[in-house]
Design a binder for these strands. Sequence first.
DNA 1: CTTGACCCTATAGTAGCTTCAGGGTGTGAA
DNA 2: TTCACACCCTGAAGCTACTATAGGGTCAAG
Lengths: 143, 143
Amino acid sequence: MKIGELAQVAQCTVETVRYYEKAGLLSPPARTAANYRSYGDAHVDRLRFIRNCRALDMTHAEIHALLGLMDQAAGDCGGINQLLDEHIAHVDMRIAELSQLKQQLSELRQCCQSKQAVDACGILQGLASMETEQRHERHTHLG
Amino acid sequence: MKIGELAQVAQCTVETVRYYEKAGLLSPPARTAANYRSYGDAHVDRLRFIRNCRALDMTHAEIHALLGLMDQAAGDCGGINQLLDEHIAHVDMRIAELSQLKQQLSELRQCCQSKQAVDACGILQGLASMETEQRHERHTHLG
DNA sequence: CTTGACCCTATAGTAGCTTCAGGGTGTGAA
DNA sequence: TTCACACCCTGAAGCTACTATAGGGTCAAG
């Protein structure tokens, strides 16, 4: 199958498929005489797997690690469990961060209920007077 | 004051200050004879404001809009309220997305409780067989 | 007169793509 | 046959919000 068809069954764009190949997540397929990429079922499975991992917000590094662990047919899946546990922990942390953020934003929003003059707007005053925090170091790759 | 001092009071790096200038968030300051940037109190206020907005995960576009609305001293603050409401909505949406994600990940994690052979690992089977979803269009800039 | 802390510009790198420029290929219709 | 049009190719640039690096200039103290 050609790249357009593969992209369609995996619900992504052609550019994304080519990008995954360059990024080393998808192995380079055979080529036709016209230099078109030619994929088989194994590629479909692999790409679906990658897209599912991405739908779960895993990074390429995580996916790469997972694919590596998969391909060691000899091993056990302890590493896989650990990787997933760590990823769940990332998601948890990001949810906690965003919840705190929402709290701050809601408080700020309370500072101005009506359309008043800009000079008197409590939101702007709040934004101007907040204690500037330390740059918060990222705990996760989730934005 | 020189750039290092400004960066210190605003809790960010010198590079970030220069970056904000290039990005059009911070106006170019006067220069000394030695071509050093020379900042005053207005710059301190502005940079603190920007850093506070960033601490609340606003994008540069949002901050830029906010600064524009502020500088129209004549206007009322309806636009400011609206901008903040929209930003809060972004955060809400992202929290909802991540919660759903966590649910999916937890279910997946349930599929494998022990160290077993990779071939039998329920997590990998889950990742392989998930219904690939539509590329989810970003509802927010929050990752 | 040298050391070290600070400043300058310009460029490249990060993640995970998307978009664009500038081509080649293959098929159906006029 | 020739045209249009959909698809394919490569390589490079763009996106966000910075961070890092190279290669230099400035200034005060010892």
